[in-house]
Design a protein around this nucleic acid. Structure first.
Length: 159
DNA sequence: GCCAACGTTGGC
DNA sequence: GCCAACGTTGGC
């Protein structure tokens, strides 16, 4: 008995890992999440869950692609690597701190749906990414909001 | 367990 | 580059 598909938004800085990188590699481990709330959300994910792929710290920030969760959560190997910027000295193989999921490309959207546009659309009222100061890098998304963002991406840009 | 200091995120 | 809003750390 499988549960209903859930929807999420996952942020990435395009300088680090962009939608074009995901187009190129097809599937990638979502490395480097070091926030407990984001980790816990990834541990709730199931294969086939749908993801809005969001570029942050860029101009403009916004949703640029669709992806799917491609694995259950498993320990993020970079926490065990002393040379990695993601190293976690308190972690051990028996007691990992940080988890990740694999994410696979569904599609690169025909255009970026910018944060400004997300904030301006009444149908997206309540979407977490619109909140000032919301820095959580993995966010749950309501199915209707997910559908609306896809619809916007397939419509002409405003203005 | 409180909370000040500090580090990070991320829009602008 | 600035800085507000957070999350984490560590002294007490």
């Amino acid at each position: 008995m499988s549960r209903a598909v859930r929807h999420f938004l996952m942020k990435t800085e395009p300088d680090v890992f962009s939608i074009d990188d995901l187009v190129r590699v097809g599937k990638a481990p979502w490395e480097g999440v070091r926030n407990y709330q984001a980790r816990n959300l990834m541990r709730e994910m199931a294969i086939g869950d749908l993801v809005l792929f969001y570029h942050s710290s860029t101009e403009p920030p916004g949703v640029v692609g669709l992806a799917r969760v491609a694995s259950e959560a498993y320990p993020d190997a970079s926490q065990f690597d002393p040379k990695s910027e993601y190293h976690e000295p308190r972690a051990s193989a028996e007691r990992p701190f940080w988890y990740l999921v694999d994410v696979e490309l569904a599609e690169k959207l025909p255009r970026c749906v910018t944060l400004a546009e997300l904030k301006a659309d009444d149908a997206l009222d309540g979407m977490l990414v619109r909140r000032k100061g919301m820095r959580l890098s993995v966010q749950p998304v309501e199915p209707a909001h997910y559908a609306r963002v896809v619809e916007l991406a397939r419509s002409p840009a405003p203005g």
